[in-house]
Write a protein that binds this DNA or RNA. Structure first.
Lengths: 343, 343
DNA sequence: CTGAAAGCGCTAACAT
DNA sequence: ATGTTAGCGCTTTCAG
């Protein structure tokens, strides 16, 4: 295997010209069935794979999607989300013969050289589409740059809108079930997001009951261990919350354990809902409800929209805001129930 | 900005030939200082970035590193590790002007078309180096393929050797501190790795005390909640472990809480060590010791070795097995201490 | 429906 | 130390 096999080899094997081969691999309709069949067989037997470099140089499509993410974000939750997107996105792209490349971009709020760096990257890569991961999707400079270059761009649906406020959604649901004393336990992770969700929770509560439940709220993102102490302190007194919202799945799991050790039955005495989904939430007893933002799936969806955009006309603006249900799903499980009549 | 600016533009602006520009951007020593300066300025003002496609087609280096990972691996821990590697690897590569691309490969033990698919990918991408992520590093076919193509490859140090057995290392350390009753709580995640670590723990114990502590071991990867019930059952009886190893960081955190609620002081009455590192382990009280395999850092290191390999001679075999201390580090923290004299 | 020609941006190999 | 020549593998013209 000297230097990889080229379109020329395939052409020779199928006894056609390079163009015909090119047409076949690009699914052009103007190819005779017989020629097409011969070419496809030659491709299969030779194990031919078109060179991305040559393809993108010839002016054709590069077959590459670019996802840019803020580089500074070293939060522990971030790595997991990134990994999830990588997994889901690669699968989606691979299915259509595309490649997905993740590139960090300086996260600074303003954009000193961020736009310039992006320009360099797209110059070097010629991606067919770019996904701006939050909070990069809020940078107008980057969006403008992409638009001016005619490169389709996408963002995670609902990332800007308040629609993505899990704290608010969870609180609303619990209020709907008659709960008035609702605890909220944040967790270490993205502080900004935590802040937004907490604000959403407060908003939902304020609509029904002006009294802020400040004693039921963990303000400063406690660690798991601290959070548990806090929950214990919350649950022991006679006046205690009838429901608890936790940002992290593991916190919810641990709260369940604490409740059990205090002889509080879930959901009879205490409803529990997590703001992140996790397989473990299903296997515990009782399974815990979760409010899930399926980032990975949304990301894969963004990839698919981008790939589709190329096939259709050159719509450089791919945004398609999805409805709330799709971008934030409430997974009902036995851990939540109507509030008890009296405490 | 019509079609991106090319080497030609730079050459014209600097009043030299394309070749000279090429030499400058490739750090060839045979360029006069004055020409070099002019070219560099032109590059800066024009914002020129060489096209990867053209570069890799011209026969030069593609500036791309490829990391292949098993696609099926949907474990929750995996996404986090992948994300960490992506973060660390991208940073390392970006610093040297390289790009890093992650590609999934069918994970099946044998390799039906895996090798073929890899061949296709390297044909399309012409990567300058490939990193085989476990368990792909064990596939001889893939290694052979890369070697025959003369593409430098790397794997995560210590992934094959027993050196990476965190369970064994933790157990040894605790035994060294005089502990004989040691509990082990596995957690959901990679079942194979869990199995290996558990075996290592048993091995270490067997060397000192033939009695298998089967009652102190969680065999079947319990969820966090189940694990806590188990720990409680473990710690209440008079005959109880004086030390506990947990695979996951959050489990350790929760165990700490359980111990506290049982009035057991850590580390006086119970030593605690986690087999995964996490920022929270530092902030809790007392901080919990951890046995950490710095995958992300190791991955970044692999990237760097690959990039260096190109600069040096064409050593296609980049393996450099690192010493144990580097690939598996014991982070001592107050949660472990000598075993109490008598229970 | 198919083929021939030209060129994408860059780098090796020779020249000079 | 620098310029010139010839492709790399593919796709887009434009002719048959």
């Amino acid at each position: 295997m000297g230097r990889g096999i080229t379109i020329e080899d395939v052409a020779r094997a199928a006894d056609v010209s390079r163009q015909t081969v090119s047409r076949v691999i690009n699914h052009s309709p103007r190819v005779s069935p017989s020629a097409k069949a011969r070419v496809e067989e030659a491709i299969a037997t030779l194990g031919y794979v078109p060179s991305l470099a040559a393809r993108s140089m010839g002016g054709g499509r590069s077959g590459v999607l670019l996802a840019v993410f803020p580089e500074s974000q070293t939060g522990s939750g971030t790595a997991q989300e990134l990994g999830g997107m990588l997994l889901a996105g690669s699968a989606a792209c691979g299915a259509q013969g595309y490649r997905l490349l993740f590139e960090p971009l300086c996260a600074a709020a303003g954009d000193p050289g961020a736009a310039a760096k992006l320009a360099g990257t797209i110059g070097a890569l010629q991606p067919e589409g770019v996904i701006l991961l939050p909070p990069l999707d809020r940078a107008p400079e980057l969006r403008k740059l992409l638009d001016s270059r005619g490169i389709p761009r996408a963002t995670l649906p609902g990332s800007e809108a308040a629609s993505g406020n899990a704290g608010e959604a969870a609180a609303r649901r619990l209020i709907e079930l008659g709960h008035r004393q609702i605890g909220y336990i944040s967790g270490p992770g993205d502080p900004q997001r935590s802040e937004r969700w907490l604000a959403g929770y407060r908003r939902a509560l304020a609509e029904r009951d002006s009294r802020a439940h400040r004693h039921f709220v963990a303000e400063d993102q406690p660690g798991l261990c601290t959070a548990l102490d806090l929950v214990r302190a919350l649950l022991v007194p006679t006046i205690r919350p009838t429901a608890i919202i936790t940002e992290r799945a593991d916190t919810a799991l641990a709260v369940l354990h604490v409740a059990r050790s205090l002889k509080l039955a879930v959901p009879r005495d205490l409803s529990l809902i997590a703001l992140a989904e996790d397989p473990e939430l299903v296997t515990c007893d009782p399974p815990i409800a979760a409010l899930h933002r399926p980032v990975a799936a949304l990301f894969a969806g963004a990839c698919e929209r981008l790939m589709a955009a190329r096939k259709t006309a050159d719509d450089t603006a791919v945004s398609a805001e999805l409805p709330l249900e799709l971008t934030l799903e409430l997974i009902e499980r036995p851990s939540i129930a109507r509030a008890p009549r009296a405490i």
